[in-house]
Design a protein around this nucleic acid. Sequence first.
DNA 1: CATGGTCAAGTGGCA
DNA 2: TGCCACTTGACCATG
Length: 295
Amino acid sequence: MLNFGYCCINLTLQKSGVVTSRTMRKATFLEKGITYASQLALANVTDLKKIIEWNAAKNVKVFRVTSELFPWSSEYSLSDLPDYKRISDILLECGTLARVSNIRLSAHPSHFVKLASSKENVVKAAIKDLETHSEFFDLMGLEASHWNPLNIHIGCSFSEEASAKFCDNFYRLSPNLQKRLVVENDDKGSCYSVQQLHQYITEKIKTPITFDYFHHSFHTQGVPEREAALLAAQTWRDKLPLFHYSDSKKIYEEFSGNPRAHADYIYNKIVEHVPCDIDLEAKAKELALLKYRNN
DNA sequence: CATGGTCAAGTGGCA
DNA sequence: TGCCACTTGACCATG
């Protein structure tokens, strides 16, 4: 029932040059434009397929796809890419391989996605970014559901206004994107806890809650972990929840910096409060997953 | 060809 | 006021 996954990067394959987040700086994009962006995107999706093949071979059933497949995608439409046909074909191969291998794919659009922002230009950019994710999920042939979720944070301090803004803007999203979107609890006291997401977001727009164990530990609002996990789990209705887990680098790896920093590996036995899949947000990526699974 | 300084974006927290 | 962190380091000028 429960499967573990890892996020975006495969360190084993990376050593032989397999990466999915090739990008470029602004000056390079201005100089080389969409033609070069297309080349990088083609190389990225080509390598994405290799990672999914690796996952299938290693029986890894949950994987988060990078949000950097398409460099500077805010500046163009995917269908404008010169290599669009080849890219689409490879993405469909990726999605098909994932489906027949029963691998659950997801994505986590960046912290710059602020759907609750009071600035219209910020909201527009957020929508564009999210729609691009939904579009390449469509190109992979993934079903439009929370089985393949697009996970984001509310991204600002909790308030009635921000909550209303987020919910209003949710209805500006395309139907497939609405069916994929899920929201994650934050680790800062001023931001959205599981309870606040539930009351002010999910109650209104039915968006499932991604329970992040580590974030919750910094912002419980008095709700015990088990209770928060159960509250989040019930929002997924007929789909198995997809949660996030990481351990503190400061506590387990003699690191003196930010206690919120993620450790390379998993050190605790993860308490499975409910049936769910879990993304391990560990810096050692698939190595951390294999190590945890072998224990 | 290795490396370290630098790099699109929003927001909040902290020194 | 300015820097850091965040789902993920990668780019590229310099030596």
